[in-house]
Design a protein around this nucleic acid. Structure first.
Length: 338
DNA sequence: CGAGTTTGACCTGCGC
DNA sequence: GCGCAGGTCAAACTCG
């Protein structure tokens, strides 16, 4: 794909038309960014990010709600830099692997129910796309999803729907970060401009279509870039201490009348809201894709106090503490400095 | 023997 | 339309 630098931005959209919220977030990018650019993101100010926040600085949060909700891991020994991606554009090697930037898409789909994404609901099979040439064994009710989510099935002119994605960089010696879920590797590809291959994993839980990609930054081999796609529709298989994860299953979240209780992932919603409150207004529609968010530049300084204050008021005290734990410190810090 | 990994082939999307 | 690159499949293989 293209190697040229792309604009870095974050962007969120509220897709009301589809009765679900979607947000696409691109958090920044690092090394090669020209700091003179308005949207330059200083990594140093971002050193502590999602996962790290999840961990609250110690492993007690190993299975923190955020991690769980994101379907994300908890890097055992790592320093998470950031997250990112976009929904539609594929992150090119130069973007992810290149360490030039990390993209993560945070696309929360919180529809109640039938939305195909809710929890990896696409008819399992994600797999068999086995060349519709020749041998397609059709099973009733699955015909159209032959390709899992996307390839064959999409109708003309309709962009395939991407699973929510969340990516982040982690300092780690090991590629496979322990996140409590079980993954099965289904592919590996050489990445352009990178000596390190990208590995593809799929959650082994039946009917869970969550996938993740793992690759190393070629610029910093100690950095692992992990991209999660989709949302787990099941609890963490490994037993968690106190099962903190369960606490934040969607159903539990639903029981709490907070603005995040749309029925999905708290952190995603949180971030969605954070951006919705601050940045959606700068979203510019693009001409060629339905969910491409390119076209707007997000200034992370936009996050303001009102947002957090609002949630502070709405969340029970204990949960607000949690909020503090899991909200990327960069956000909190910035709000505090405003 | 089942589950997971490896790996070459194939498919799709996108830019030119 | 072509070629490239990303993503996925699935047979073969490895491992416990």
């Amino acid at each position: 794909m293209s190697d040229e630098p792309k604009p870095y931005f974050q962007d969120f959209m509220l897709d009301q038309g589809s009765n679900m919220y979607s947000c696409e977030k691109q958090f920044s990018t690092f090394h090669n960014l020209d700091s003179s650019q308005p949207n330059y993101f200083d990594p140093s100010s971002y050193n502590m990010s999602f996962t790290e926040s999840l961990q609250g600085g110690n492993m007690d949060h190993y299975n923190s709600p955020l991690a769980t909700s994101f379907g994300v891991l908890s890097p055992s020994s790592s320093e998470v830099f950031s997250s990112v991606d976009q929904g539609n554009q594929k992150p090119s090697a130069g973007e992810l692997g290149g360490g030039d930037q990390t993209l993560a898409t945070l696309n929360s789909s919180i529809s109640n129910s039938s939305s195909s994404e809710a929890g990896g609901v696409e008819e399992e099979d994600s797999g068999k796309r086995k060349k519709n040439i020749g041998q397609v064994k059709e099973e009733p009710g699955q015909e159209s999803s032959k390709n899992g989510n996307n390839k064959v099935d999409k109708k003309k002119g309709e962009k395939k729907q991407k699973e929510p994605r969340f990516a982040f960089m982690t300092k780690s010696e090991v590629d496979q970060l322990e996140d409590g879920y079980r993954w099965r590797k289904y592919g590996q590809k050489a990445v352009k401009n990178s000596p390190y291959p990208r590995s593809y994993y799929r959650c082994t839980t039946q009917k869970c279509t969550v996938k993740k990609r793992v690759e190393r930054s070629y610029e910093d081999p100690t950095t692992v870039i992990t991209t999660y796609e989709g949302q787990h529709n099941h609890p963490v298989p490994t037993s968690l201490r106190g099962n903190a994860a369960a606490m934040f299953t969607p159903s539990n979240l639903l029981s709490t009348p907070t603005p995040f209780s749309y029925g999905s992932n708290f952190p995603q919603d949180l971030l969605l809201h954070m951006h919705h409150h601050n940045t959606f207004n700068i979203t510019q529609p693009t001409t060629h894709t339905t969910n491409n968010v390119a076209g707007s530049v997000y200034s992370h300084n936009n996050i303001n106090n009102s947002f957090l204050q609002q949630y502070q008021q709405q969340l029970p005290p204990d949960q607000y503490g949690l909020l503090q734990d899991i909200v990327p410190s960069m956000f909190l810090n910035r709000t505090n400095h405003n």
